[in-house]
Design a protein around this nucleic acid. Structure first.
Lengths: 341, 341
DNA sequence: CTGAAAGCGCTTACAG
DNA sequence: CTGAAAGCGCTTACAG
């Protein structure tokens, strides 16, 4: 690989000048620019990214930290990541994918983390990733609320999960449902905690008392229960509960399908006997299946874009004012899986 | 951030020694090791990754290049990426996600690409990404066959797509199907080309002549047709074709759902009237829906693991012999969507 | 087992 | 607009 000295020598200029034609930080005369570029092309020269990083102290990469161990990509995450990559590339940033154990204390890494900033997906209570980032003074933004971290003023991009659950509950209650089962996300995620509170409040607002066994949490991904989540909860709850459940709120499409299977085995059909609402599902899945599934549009791609934007502000690559807490809109998309009782 | 000089001074040793206790490349006495480690902890010191990279000429990152523009993560890709990340972390490697335009000639990047090697997902004919990698002398392995690249001896990890299609066809033909429609992947992908050939051969082997309009290709992702792929092809073909289609092979679960919607609108049911086979779908989706979908297990996670292993061999981090072409097994998983005619 | 010194390939004040 | 020189924070022969 040709290096800057080779180009400088052959073009008859100094290294500094070669550097400038590539970085564009100082103007170079047209003649010199053209000559340097030509020589560079001949030698197949391209500035060494690492050497540049060492002096600029920028890696031009952001980390996307995905909770490892209790997580699996869903359509939501796919779209989110698409948004992140596309937006990051706008600023010349690349995306480093990283799974960090949320809880286990691993042996500290042997070297500093080669990123300028990070995006933390799906924070949990007392999330270790956040502690690590904070400790290493790496700017970051979380996608989702943080809790119990003892860190001030963390930048966050998020849906309004409180409002989402209230909207869903009001939607179902307005259709006459009063016995609503909630298949929530994993218990360790802060989003689940927010949702549960909102769920209880929404019911209370309509004088509905929360029945036991009406809120369930997604098991850890590698557990035996994981693959049966949705089915077991639905089957057991509907088979045993005194009061009849008439609506189910499901965290994602997979869980919804699983629940529908249980309903089928119990002899119920959707939406005639039971209404089904999916919070976070693949749009094309949701409308392709029968019945098509009513759900929320969370704008995952927009969440990705906004989290990159916020991070770029923190890294001062984006100028101007910004809010530390950005909310991405969401709205109900009605399809065929919810009906009135 | 503390640097190696600070630690060396405070611990009363040379920088070289500090370097050695962290890199473990040369032994250090217990006393010195302990002292250096203690000081490092006090100063919150961790070796600078970039500085190290500059001299070792290793970034300890591999790139995962995803075709941009005509691509969307599916469950297959999720599991694949999971395999890649997990296996890569075994060797201390991180994964840089990258979407490179497959065809457009973008302005050349302003700096070298900070990866030691790359994995190319879903190669197309005359794939630009492969040319770029080859040109920049970055070791890479493709997941999928390459065609028309003019490059010798490219390392490849792949399913045996020829065998997969033959197996599927034989499976369907053994159930009496002779009019089989094939909803293939995107036309530009090499996998589609291999599959189409195999499809034709499999039919020929049973003296079945390929009817027109029996092979379709997935449109580019941002096209208007994309969202209707599966539905339109199924509807139009079944409504207009003289001979009745009795089985459909679908590239993925999304397309299968789409096709099922068309079948419903046409008054056909699966598997009574039409059999449906999914090549590459989300296992949990496949068995959660009704009817559960018969399909192939492609072992995407294993594909990810093996492509990292092969790349590590090329980077000489893994010793010993290796084959340049690794095939990952696949097998039919029977569920409820295929029946005999 | 340890140290002193050169060097990895750039960028960046500084000077002109 | 350009150049000479120092320096980014490490690792690595070389020597002992």
């Amino acid at each position: 690989m040709a290096k800057i000295d080779d180009v400088a020598r052959l073009a008859g200029v100094s290294k500094g000048t070669v550097s400038n034609v590539f970085s564009q930080k100082r103007a170079t005369s047209p003649k010199v620019t053209e000559r340097v570029l030509r020589v560079s092309r001949e030698l197949n020269y391209v500035p060494n990214h690492t050497a540049r990083s060492l002096v600029t102290k920028k890696t031009m990469a952001i980390g996307l930290t995905i909770p490892h161990g209790n997580f699996f990509f869903s359509a939501f995450h796919n779209q989110f990541i698409n948004g992140v990559i596309l937006e990051a590339s706008t600023y010349g940033y690349r995306v480093l994918l990283d799974m960090i154990a949320v809880e286990e204390v691993k042996t500290p890494s042997l070297a500093s983390y080669p990123i300028d900033g990070a995006i933390v997906l799906g924070p949990t209570k007392e999330d270790r990733r956040i502690q690590l980032l904070h400790q290493n003074q790496i700017p970051f933004v979380t996608v989702g609320k943080i809790m119990n971290q003892g860190i001030e003023d963390v930048s966050t991009v998020n849906n309004n999960n409180d409002k989402i659950i209230r909207d869903i509950c009001n939607y179902l209650i307005s259709k006459g449902h009063r016995n609503i089962m909630f298949l929530n996300a994993g218990q360790q995620m802060t989003v689940s905690i927010v949702r549960t509170e909102a769920f209880i409040h929404a019911l209370e607002a309509h004088q509905i008392e929360l029945q036991p066994h009406m809120i369930h949490y997604k098991p850890l991904i590698y557990s035996e229960e994981y693959m049966r989540y949705g089915y077991d909860e639905t089957y057991n709850t509907l088979a045993n509960l005194e009061e009849k459940v008439t609506a189910i709120i499901s965290d994602d499409d997979r869980t919804a399908f699983s629940a529908m299977n249980a309903l089928k085995d119990l002899g119920y059909s959707v939406p005639e006997d039971i209404s089904l609402f999916v919070i976070c599902g693949d749009l094309s899945m949701m409308h392709q299946v029968t019945p098509s599934l009513t759900g929320m549009d969370l704008q995952p791609s927009e969440l990705g874009v906004q989290s990159v934007k916020l991070l770029m502000h923190k890294l001062s690559v984006l100028e101007g004012e910004f809010t530390n807490h950005w909310i991405v809109d969401s709205k109900i998309v009605e399809r065929d899986s919810c009906s009135s009782v």
